[in-house]
Design a protein around this nucleic acid. Structure first.
Lengths: 190, 190
DNA sequence: GCGATATCTAGTCAGGGTCAAGTTCGGGTT
DNA sequence: AACCCGAACTTGACCCTGACTAGATATCGC
């Protein structure tokens, strides 16, 4: 990059900071994230992040909002391309494993401002994909709010347990295949 | 106790420190836990915890080990008193909600030493309650490793989502009843 | 009693979050 | 073309925290 010492204005620092944050979260987890290290990786001073995000929670709020947007898009795409609610669940797991940093931040509300408008909007949109589809499939085995909660719990739990290293021994193969198999246990209510 | 200014020797400082840690985790989460604040609440100097637990990860390791022991006991008790695997799942959720601090630490392996012998032993014991019972109930709808993983994922996901505040709107009533209802969606595989 | 040892205190250092003030740059005004 | 205003970024400081060390103190075995 630019052998010139460094332009005073970065150009798109917010994006660069978020990218650095995601990389760092992948390495040390969201709790051990350091604003100074993020700034270091983006090649700016330790105070620069505060200008764009206010504080640490502000940066993580941006990460969470982006995460909910990506999740919503991934779920919508899965439903539109397959038409199966089951594949929405598989896409949920796929998202969690392929966007680990986003996912881990999203479900730690104490780390960011979960009432931020951008976060709320993106979360509503992705939640609609979890509660909406089953209602449209009246013939589906899993219906109603309880069914949606059950399905969401199942895939969320699987993703969470996988990310925390609790399933590596019990589920040796590809996690996505395992996730698809797991959803087979969800059935009509008696 | 003891209105004397303070005995030099606390008596049972490790237990008091863990209790203070649990209380603090309930308030600010496991990531924001501060050893100094823990020491402050236990009424000892800021260096005292290091003597008993080495470092912060050591304290959380003790919390995790205690958590796995309590969980294992709760699951075993649920199975023995009801004979139903389903109630083991409900007990899992009940434990997570009533021992939030323990639960949140247990499933954040990056915060403690998850290869600690005491932790491993306690975890194996509680895992046995999740994998064992279904094997004994050959007539049960959910069998095999995949079935156990599905059941575990379901209740773990429900507990996690509840703790992160994602279900309060969709599930208005008693979470334990909701958990019992959710398990009704788990059925024999086709 | 008396030392040995576990227990706890106090001081120190590096690293991090946040704040306030200063510096540099781009773009618009006259 | 000169000016200048505000946004972007830097710099320096303060306080808190985690970890380490040396020293003080109480308890227990003998």
């Amino acid at each position: 990059m630019a052998q010139s010492p460094r332009p005073y204005h970065h150009g798109d620092l917010p994006r660069a900071l978020i990218a650095a944050a995601l990389e760092l979260i992948d390495e040390v987890g969201p709790a051990a994230l350091s604003l100074r290290e993020v700034a270091r990786r983006a090649g700016v001073s330790h105070g620069a992040p505060a200008h764009h995000f206010g504080d640490k929670a502000g940066l993580l709020t941006a990460v969470a909002a982006q995460g909910y947007e990506l999740l919503g898009a991934a779920l919508a795409d899965a439903f539109e391309s397959t038409g199966e609610f089951r594949e929405v669940g598989v896409a949920y797991v796929r998202f969690a494993l392929s966007h680990r940093a986003h996912f881990e931040v999203m479900f730690r509300p104490e780390l960011y401002r979960d009432d931020d408008p951008a976060v709320v909007a993106a979360r509503v949109r992705s939640s609609a994909m979890l509660y909406g589809p089953p209602a449209d499939l009246s013939g589906d085995a899993v219906t109603g709010v309880d069914g949606a909660v059950a399905a969401w719990s199942l895939v969320h739990g699987f993703a969470t347990l996988w990310l925390s290293g609790n399933l590596e021994r019990a589920v040796p193969g590809d996690p996505e295949d395992a996730a698809r198999a797991i959803t087979g246990f969800l059935s009509i209510r008696r």
